[in-house]
Design a binder for these strands. Structure first.
Lengths: 253, 253
DNA sequence: CTACACCTTTACGTTACGTCAATGTCAATA
DNA sequence: TATTGACATTGACGTAACGTAAAGGTGTAG
């Protein structure tokens, strides 16, 4: 049997435009073109279309489908396995997305108060996620996979009290730092107190403290604009001031 | 604090282009434009961006986000609930997709033979799905929701033997029909045998048989091109011939 | 002979940006 | 001071898989 676009489209449950598109990208060419310029498809094309639609329903992209059914030495099993991995990752992401939406709904409706442990866990998780999103690649490059994972672990294992202390330290650091900034002296008493607070804050997530690493982090606050922005958001120049104070504190030039 | 595109982008972990795009679609305008034409964002814009990114992470489209944070009488809870429904539907689809891919992989690797009940169930399911994809809307309109569901139920509850008989009947119908078509006489013995086979085949999924309905289906084979294509795929004109034979058989018209 | 249903190609619209290209601005340095 | 390098701007094309006109040719039934 021979089919025009409409006929074949109806048979397969797709649109004529889809068939023209498939012709255009070369994934399914008609058997021949008749005198009037009509696309004429035969049974071979019907079979090929069936295959295409099968893979398409699996969510495979047309480009990959093209490879799958064109290249004879392409292994469809391997391709399908790769595709499965993608789908699984997608589902995982979708799951956390759904969980987030549900949490947000519950929060908005006041069904859960989240003033207790949950909220705390959620905060920690969110902070880690945010940190990962913003700095993930860089800090992994700078400090290595292990260090980063370790500090995340420490973070996750903090008790509520420890976490509150961590937050409190951060706030105190900011307050002290701003006051010190007003004096303009990175070597002054207030600035050195800020540097010490900064050390305390850092050791919360660090396994071991070293002056060199401390000075390195302070320098990074100036080098990396995103960190700079975080401190300078409170007061322009704060990041540099903190670095200078820390350099004095650690005695590293 | 004030930010240029780069600064704000770094702070939020997005690209400058994204900020320009958000300006373009009016979802986040800068606080002001300086003399050089630079976009300058303030803390109010930072907050708004946080909100935008929050909803974006939930997978909400920018257009809906715009409504969410612009329209004051827009209920975010309702919007989130709708969005959750969409996500759940998406996950459901993704799940069946994954199941399908896995089944295909297993089949390709020969890990499962599917020569038993499973294969049979799979076939039935696939037929129903295909039928649904192709004709779902129309047959529901023509015969009503109940009838369609009922016939699917009958189909699903068929035993292997019944199903094989169903398939055998279909094949015999085709063979007989083609032979009858060669005679050219819709009222002839062979054609009437085909019509009777068609009746038997239909009653497999019909609760009750009526001549009128039988004639109606035969007419539909001619009216609906997708059915026509199914029969004409074997031999052009077969659909019409079957209709004529059935009309004689049922004594209608 | 005229509808009318089919076919054709061309081309813009969709989403949320990525990626040049051409050009202007600003701060630091030789 | 002139230049350099890192920023900024707008404009425009590309993405995936088609949907949707628009403008025009074809085929057949009445």
């Amino acid at each position: 049997m021979e089919y025009t676009v409409q006929k074949l489209a109806s048979l397969a449950g797709i649109s004529p435009r889809t068939l023209r598109y498939y012709d255009e990208i070369g994934i399914l060419k008609p058997a021949r073109i008749n005198s009037a310029g009509y696309r004429i498809y035969g049974s071979k094309e019907v079979d090929r279309l069936q295959q295409i639609l099968f893979y398409r329903e699996l969510g495979v992209s047309l480009e990959r489908i093209k490879e799958l059914i064109t290249d004879p030495q392409f292994d469809p099993v391997i391709a399908l396995k790769e595709h499965r991995e993608k789908l699984l990752a997608k589902r995982k992401q979708l799951d956390s997305l759904i969980a987030n939406v549900e949490k947000t709904i519950a929060l908005s409706e006041g069904r859960i108060t989240m003033s207790d442990k949950e909220k705390f866990e959620g905060f920690k998780q969110k902070m880690i996620e945010e940190n990962e999103r913003k700095y993930g690649k860089e800090i992994r490059e700078k400090y290595g996979e292990e260090q980063v994972e370790k500090s995340y672990q420490i973070f996750k294992n903090m008790t509520k009290e420890q976490y509150e202390e961590y937050e409190r330290l951060n706030k105190e650091l900011m307050v002290t730092l701003k006051k010190a900034f007003a004096t303009g002296d990175p070597a002054g008493e207030l600035a050195q107190k800020a540097a010490d607070l900064h050390r305390q804050w850092l050791t919360f997530t660090w396994g071991n403290y070293s002056k060199e690493a401390h000075a390195g982090v302070a320098q990074m606050y100036v080098d990396d604009e995103r960190f700079t922005a975080y401190y300078d958001k409170e007061q322009p120049g704060l990041a540099k001031f903190l670095r200078d104070a820390v350099l004095v504190y650690t005695g590293e030039k």
